[in-house]
Design a protein around this nucleic acid. Structure first.
Ligand SMILES: [Zn+2]
Ligand SMILES: [Zn+2]
Ligand SMILES: [Zn+2]
Ligand SMILES: [Zn+2]
Lengths: 148, 148
DNA sequence: ATCCGTATTGAGACATGGTATCATTTAACC
DNA sequence: GGTTAAATGATACCATGTCTCAATACGGAT
């Protein structure tokens, strides 16, 4: 079992470091990008076929509660894609036509985060910022032609 | 059929104004807040029981593509909640323990939005900003006790 | 190293959420 | 009112996630 720094955050929070949890997190860390649950299940199974389906979902839920990953709606279908939050935050642009995502880094939301903590008496551990619109490819293709 | 300004955006985009679409949007507009698909299905059915399940989902998808609503994962990863984007944006804090959401208004993201449009050649129509952490109630309750 | 108590697990039945198909209906345009 | 393609509803279907519970394994104590 590989114990990554992120995995240790589970132990710090009082959870056991199990093979199932290490494997799921390992898969997500390796992939670095959005993954559907199907992809995660598949890859986990390849690495250790003894890990059960339920544990994968339980781990995804746990990692979400610990703000290590975050489910987001990018694909047209019902399925969320899970994305790692390397430093507690993640930002992207989603094309509402083709569902492609463009990732970007800087957000400048630190100040707002602190203000919100004070204002609402919460402890914030991360954020997700998602812009949506139509990407260059799709506007050229003229999927929605509402001008002219 | 009530034709709200938002509904006209469907026609402007080349879609027909149907009873099913008007009803679904009407339900979401009336509720003003996060709704699960189950709640939407239920309420739509109350207003017009002839409207089929599939059309509700088709309309949710369409409204999402038009950036009128946005699905977000507030309660774990199972079911998204759909939320109206009154002025193209929506912002909230999600408690990762109890899944309660706290809505807030000001984001100051207009500048960043314009910069991204220029940088990536996209046309942005809205954004979702989601902070997560632990709300006051949950930290008092000490659901995760990792200090001291 | 071994033992113990409890969190966690895996299997699989189950529930829920969303989609595909297709004959029928309806909005939009004239 | 007539035409036509988009949209619909019914329903069967599939995918995704959850529940239960006996079995297992982690982590701390010895
Ligand atoms: Zn696109
Ligand atoms: Zn950020
Ligand atoms: Zn909200
Ligand atoms: Zn905003």
């Amino acid at each position: 079992m590989i114990i990554s720094p992120r995995l240790e955050r589970l132990r710090d929070a009082g959870y056991k470091l199990t093979t199932a949890r290490a494997t799921v997190l390992g898969v997500i860390e390796t992939h670095e990008g959005h993954m559907t649950s199907a992809e995660i299940l598949d890859e986990v199974s390849k690495r250790d076929s003894s890990i059960g389906r339920a544990s994968v979902f339980r781990t995804l839920d746990l990692l979400t509660r610990l703000a290590i990953i975050r489910p987001t709606y990018t694909s047209g279908s019902a399925t969320p894609t899970y994305v790692l939050m390397p430093d507690g935050h993640h930002h992207h642009i989603v094309c509402v036509q083709c569902h492609q995502t463009i990732e970007f880094e800087d957000c400048g939301l630190g100040v707002l985060s602190e203000r919100l903590e004070a204002e609402f008496g919460v402890k914030l551990t991360g954020h997700l910022l998602e812009f949506y619109g139509v990407c260059g490819d799709c506007s050229e293709a003229g999927v929605v032609d509402d001008e002219g």
